[in-house]
């Protein structure tokens, strides 16, 4: 393939027009972050014995985690260009490959998550009430599993006895998953916008923020909604601080990194996407509205959590797409 290159940065580059990762990856990164946030909040609030105050955050979050994670992993599967080889991820472990670490972390989450859910539901059944009756009905439908023997009878009490361990593991794996979604991008030196480890805490905190926002929507009691809105404010504040650190990191770095900021400070689509929609609509507006809600100037609505979740999705889109617009290979043709 012949490439005409003049002394300009807008030169055509080899394979430059081809997008590496499309919409599937940002959607996965968001869902992965959301699951990480739900697992951490669920484990942490369980350990602080707020079971009755925050039923959705603890039990609902734990149950939703593996379901949402499966949707996210399906997005990853959609992105693969050689789909029949997907099993190859699980016949190898490559120490230097973040993607290999990530695929094994995803596999670890399922058993821990299922045991944690089992323990939570077992306690729910012991307590009695509506949920217990519903679960007993489901249990009767699962009678066909009886041939598996006593094992099925023994797991729930065993899980309930060790529930604190699973809560801690849930927090640990949640942090690993949330940070990994950032490290996945930040391990590529060739794409300087991604190449900052600030992405790991940024995506982790953004995931926590989205999970807290989801709890604000789905918790029933006002007190619970208030509690989740309160911690969401902290997450949004920290997220803004990490975005500042990320920009300072790149702006004060070498030329490749300074150039990497181009898509976010230039006259292209990523500049308004990032500053207006992600920072303005997804972070500063909800922070301001929550401030007004606390002062009782306005009543709490679902507008704030929806803005936070939209901001979380668009944050991943902005970084995944803008990061591919800048490559080290620009330096070859200078």
């Amino acid at each position: 393939m012949e490439i005409e290159v003049e002394n300009t940065f807008h030169a055509p580059l080899p394979h430059a027009g081809e997008l590496i990762w499309g919409w599937e990856i940002p959607v996965y990164l968001f869902l992965g972050g959301l699951v990480a946030g739900m697992m951490i909040l669920s484990g942490a609030y369980f350990l602080s014995k707020k079971r009755n105050e925050l039923p959705f955050t603890i039990v609902g979050g734990a149950i939703l985690s593996p379901i949402v994670l499966s949707i996210g992993m399906f997005m990853l599967f959609l992105d693969l260009s050689y789909k029949v080889h997907v099993w190859r991820f699980y016949t190898a472990f490559e120490f230097t490959s973040p993607m290999s670490w990530g695929s094994w972390i995803l596999m670890l989450i399922y058993p821990v998550s299922i045991l944690f859910i089992t323990a939570l539901l077992f306690e729910e059944v012991k307590k009695g009430g509506g949920v217990a009756e519903y679960l007993t009905k489901i249990g009767k439908k699962l009678e066909f599993l009886r041939p598996l023997g006593d094992l099925l009878d023994e797991i729930p009490p065993w899980a309930a006895k060790n529930v604190n361990i699973f809560a801690w593991m849930s927090i640990g794996l949640g942090i690993a998953l949330g940070a990994y979604t950032g490290i996945l991008l930040s391990s590529y030196a060739a794409r300087p916008l991604w190449n900052s480890q600030a992405l790991a805490p940024l995506f982790l905190i953004s995931g926590l923020s989205s999970a807290a926002a989801l709890s604000v929507i789905l918790e029933k009691k006002d007190k619970a909604k208030h509690e989740m809105a309160r911690i969401d404010r902290v997450f949004i504040g920290v997220e803004l601080f990490i975005i500042f650190l990320l920009f300072a990191n790149l702006a004060y770095s070498v030329r490749a990194h300074q150039w990497a900021l181009g898509p976010f400070v230039g006259s292209n689509i990523y500049t308004p996407l990032f500053w207006v929609l992600v920072v303005g609509m997804g972070l500063i507006t909800p922070l301001f509205l929550e401030f007004l809600e606390v002062r009782k100037v306005i009543k709490p609505t679902i507008v704030v959590p929806i803005l936070v979740i939209l901001g979380g999705i668009l944050l991943r889109f902005a970084f995944v797409y803008a990061g591919q617009a800048v490559c080290w290979c620009y330096f070859i043709y200078r």
Binding site: L13, S81, H85, R88, S97, Y188, A190, C327, I332
Partner: peptide, 16 residues
């Protein structure tokens, strides 16, 4: 062995 995950494409500074 390739799954087409495209991690190597993102990692290559030469877009090869």
């Amino acid at each position: 062995k390739c799954t087409g995950c495209k991690a190597c494409i993102a990692a290559c500074p030469y877009n090869a």
